[in-house]
Design a protein around this nucleic acid. Structure first.
Lengths: 119, 119
DNA sequence: CTTACATATCGAATAATATCAATCTAATAG
DNA sequence: CTATTAGATTGATATTATTCGATATGTAAG
């Protein structure tokens, strides 16, 4: 019943990155760790909203958090980003493994390379 | 008023990839071009739904479409994927450019590297 | 021209996300 | 202990995405 997650749950990361605010936060963190108060200043959002976004980012693994006294420090987790990169990179290596069941309706024509004409 | 797009509109691609169905479609296409009818067979969705997803994928640039008679052929656009990869990769190169305005409230403490203690 | 088939679009229903004000918790300072 | 400050959580609401049935469009075949 669970949604089929891509290996290593890359989908979660992609979801985390698919929002302007969060992508901007990732950009900020790419320059080094920051505490929530600093991140908050860069955006026109309220503190609860930032907290919500940081939760999604940390849950995706892309960002790790560490408490230092009252402050939360957020760090970009490069190894998880690398994993995502690896996953996406692998999509570009044409695997030539027919993941598609042979077609039923347009059998003799579809499912070939683009040069094949449909009768 | 427009949402600020990341360079080259990578956000659109990330949004396109942030859905299980679409990510699965991309996976299918990574093995080679396919027509809509073939893609449709791999999923438990209706034809209009597939059409909707293909629209998002092509609008993001990640997939290009070509009509051959009645059939639509969809092809993974590797160069656009490469662009996205490049964008994400660049996030891992610590730029050391302070994109954050110097903090106002926790001035003397936050906004430093993680080793700095907040007094 | 009519039919059949592949895909796209429309409109409406539903589900998932994002946002905020209010409140809570944890940590430090006094 | 009390007050203060940084963040998290909650509940309500607004916004956006996803999905489908119905229908439209485009293409080829008869």
């Amino acid at each position: 019943m669970d949604k089929q997650e891509t290996p290593g749950s890359q989908l979660l990361k992609l979801k985390a990155l698919s929002d302007t605010t969060r992508l901007d936060i990732i950009n900020l963190l790419s320059s080094g760790p920051l505490c929530a108060c600093d991140i908050l200043e860069s955006f026109q959002i309220t503190q609860p909203t930032l907290s919500y976004h940081m939760k999604l980012l940390t849950e995706s693994g892309l960002v790790s958090s560490e408490r230092t006294g009252k402050w939360m420090h957020y760090t970009l987790n490069c190894s998880e980003l690398e994993d995502l990169l690896g996953y996406l990179k692998q999509l570009m290596v044409s695997r030539n493994v027919p993941l598609v069941k042979s077609s039923a309706n347009c059998e003799q024509s579809c499912n070939q390379t683009k040069l094949v004409k449909h009768n």
